[in-house]
């Protein structure tokens, strides 16, 4: 069911990862993803994959939950890997069915397919872990603080963060609402699973119309409620939560920087042709 979508969900907990300063967590995620994209060989890639797995272990979120999140992107993953096989034609030819065609499978093609797949898995692990272990309010709060230097350019950072908070806040509400509307229309005999693509697209109208109507209604209600309480984004606001970096934040930062350095070094230095890709993947 639609309730099973776990991407972007938050799983409360008390692990080290949960307790990290959310600002640092965002920086770490960005650093780790940067390292991941700098990887040019299997050595650095496996290092990044190992780091991702260690993060997951530290967060004490069950692998079952993580795998469920990965299942959602399985199709994209397989499709990308499949295309990648034909994208790279270096190395030994493994399969070349018709001599006159340019269609062939080579060792490097297969390697790069595996490479891409592992990279996507690590990418998903790292980015979902951020939302799995950080509550939406903390996340937007951290984003607001990280972006606060932009105030110099008269960018309304607070309003942007408030919009994000509200948007995130309503994701579960909308999911629940879609669930109810779908059930209600199914109770009136809506058929969402069979028929041609056109028929199925048409069958979505009874779900999308009420969803939009209700969302606008809710947006108006929320705006009125905020105005009634004299909400104003500008001006000086004090904060309920004070964020302070601690030892563990710096320790994790050090690890991430070492990884970044390792990724850069192994990409530049030729490790004796150990699957070093010349082409940018």
């Amino acid at each position: 069911m639609i309730r099973d979508i776990t991407i972007g969900q938050y799983f409360p907990g008390t692990s080290v990862i949960h307790k990290l300063d959310p600002r640092m967590k965002i920086i770490l995620t960005v650093l780790n993803i940067a390292s991941l994209f700098l990887c040019r060989n299997f050595f650095s890639l496996l290092l990044m994959l190992a780091i991702s797995v260690v993060w997951v272990l530290l967060s004490r979120i069950s692998f079952k939950t993580i795998l469920k999140g990965l299942k959602m992107i399985l199709v994209i993953l397989l499709f990308t890997a499949f295309l990648q096989i034909f994208y790279n034609d270096g190395g030994t030819v493994l399969w070349h069915p018709v001599e006159s065609w340019d269609f062939k499978i080579t060792t490097e093609g297969v390697f790069s397919a595996i490479f891409i797949a592992v990279r996507i898995v690590a990418l998903i692990l790292l980015s979902t872990l951020l939302t799995y272990t950080t509550s939406p309010t903390l996340l937007t709060d951290a984003i607001e603080r990280l972006l606060s230097p932009l105030k110099v350019f008269h960018i309304k950072v607070h309003s942007l963060a408030m919009m994000m908070t509200i948007a995130l806040r309503f994701i579960p509400t909308l999911i629940e609402e879609i669930d109810i509307i779908m059930s209600a229309q199914k109770a009136r005999g809506a058929d969402l699973e069979t028929g041609s693509l056109m028929q199925r697209a048409k069958a979505l109208v009874p779900i999308l119309v009420p969803l939009f109507v209700n969302s606008f209604r809710r947006a108006y209600e929320l705006a009125f409620a905020m105005e009634a309480r004299c909400y104003g984004g500008d001006g000086k606001r004090t904060r309920l939560r004070v964020m302070k970096l601690q030892g563990r934040d710096f320790a994790m930062l050090a690890i991430a920087l070492v990884c970044l350095a390792a990724a850069i070094v192994t990409s530049v230095v030729d490790m004796g042709g150990f699957f070093l890709f010349e082409k940018v993947i």
Partner: peptide, 13 residues
């Protein structure tokens, strides 16, 4: 026939 709570939020036509 099942009529949900607040069924008016499911009108669409």
């Amino acid at each position: 026939g099942l009529c949900f709570q607040y069924p008016e939020y499911q009108l669409f036509e």
